[in-house]
Design a protein around this nucleic acid. Structure first.
Lengths: 247, 247
DNA sequence: CAATGCTATATCCTATAGGATTTGATATGT
DNA sequence: ACATATCAAATCCTATAGGATATAGCATTG
């Protein structure tokens, strides 16, 4: 239960990885590394980043040897990282056939995901509102404010930035709610969701920002009921915004 | 999302594994195997079974070489299985130090787990009641009836049997509720919970059986409201029954 | 007697080689 | 033309060896 912190940080680290990869592609010439062992557990993060950035497409095959040639490490650490990713549900494995990235989310999986969010997040928002104090409030406001900041950038980059900050906004609410298990549960799903959202470049950010403001207003009033309702509406609207993608 | 079925089956397969190990311990002399490669992905199930049966105690260290000597396979498949178990949260890893089983659940983790169950399972029971038909009803009744059957057996064995069937009872309700994601989410937690419950030999089965009967009654009436309330009470009582364990 | 530094063992981590299996293409027969 | 069988390449899977690191025990010193 104590590894929530480390996992969360690894998530956002991976986000930064993605950021780098989106701007300048990595070529195989990272021979300037002092020693191969300095990668440590970084193989996991590297593959994770490739999944997030869609460099490995959903459902695409993942060959061990290919990753060996690409990142200049042997099969053993690759297999270990793929095993962990399998446990987290990000890759699938078939015996004697190989690994492949988890396929694109289906309409059914999408509905299930939002049912889960509706069951957990509004209540978490209520608990966060009940335990709100000035420090937390200012931190939340910083997070909410940062999302509107990066306007002029590249469209794809801007959207991926928004997705990451949106995940952080929701994650912080879950952290303040106090249930690390629920937070971890949803974090794993956000990973899936992150991949999914990157497929689309729509400008859905404006509406989401308004809804975030409604949640912030409830926090400022320390009103659990208002926070619960604002979160509920936010999730329902988010679902409606993304639903046309399945046509 | 389609791997829910395979994962669920692997869980109950592992349960059977445990059953075997509880009756007659495995000694290292399984040399009668045709060829080592016939183990396939069975290394994972073997380690999983050792965790479930508490042959590997919570928090205990897990050495790769030890498992190599014990099950006569090399380090590579061991590492792959441990990586997957790490992803599922059953073992923890520290770089250059080693693996260890996830520690015993804390009081805080226990509370978080039951908060998650309360958020998800009553609503699932209501959905299951709404979609109940005669086939499902008879299947549920078979499950509920089987739990009272094995009376005269060994105390420890009887309890572990109850725990497994209890998990199956709840899992089937979640399956009928129709949300595979929620089902999978709780299944992973049940694994932890299974370990925890095995620590105690109390006769808490009688009360639980009565509460299961209340749930069954609601299913027979096709009453979502009654099912939701019966499940809610069941979980709250279950929590109260286990809470003294933390004294 | 306590604290610190050193050594030896155990363990983790990685790389490489070889056997086993799948897959895709080619050739053949109907 | 279509189906089937055969073959080669790619890939997975496993085993083994060696370097790197941490841990435990012991000796030394203030």
């Amino acid at each position: 239960m104590l590894d929530v912190e480390s996992r969360a940080s690894s998530f956002f680290n991976a986000g930064r990885y993605f950021h780098l990869m989106a701007t300048s592609d990595i070529h195989g010439e990272n021979t300037s590394l002092a020693r191969p062992s300095s990668l440590a557990g970084g193989v996991y993060e590297a593959i994770f980043a490739q999944l997030m950035s869609l460099k490995i497409a959903p459902g695409a095959r993942i060959t061990v040897d290919g990753l060996v040639r690409e990142m200049n490490v042997s099969q053993t650490p690759i297999r270990e990282a793929l095993g962990r990713l399998e446990g987290e549900g990000l890759v699938l494995r078939t015996h004697l056939v190989g690994y492949r990235a988890t396929p694109q989310i289906t309409r059914n999986g999408f509905d299930e995901l939002y049912e889960l969010r509706l069951a957990l997040e509004p209540e978490a928002a209520a608990k966060t509102a009940a335990g709100m104090d000035d420090d937390r409030l200012s931190e939340m406001r910083t997070l909410a404010g940062g999302m509107a900041g990066n306007a002029g950038a590249d469209e794809q980059l801007r959207y991926s930035d928004f997705a990451r900050q949106d995940a952080e906004f929701h994650d912080r609410i879950l952290q303040f709610a106090g249930n690390g298990l629920i937070r971890e549960t949803l974090r794993l799903q956000h990973a899936h969701f992150h991949i999914f959202r990157l497929m689309f470049h729509w400008r859905v950010t404006a509406e989401a920002l308004d809804e975030h403001e409604a949640i912030m207003a409830a926090f400022e009033q320390r009103s659990p009921e208002a926070a619960r309702e604002a979160m509920r509406i936010h999730i329902i609207n988010s679902r409606a915004r993304l639903l046309p993608a399945f046509d």
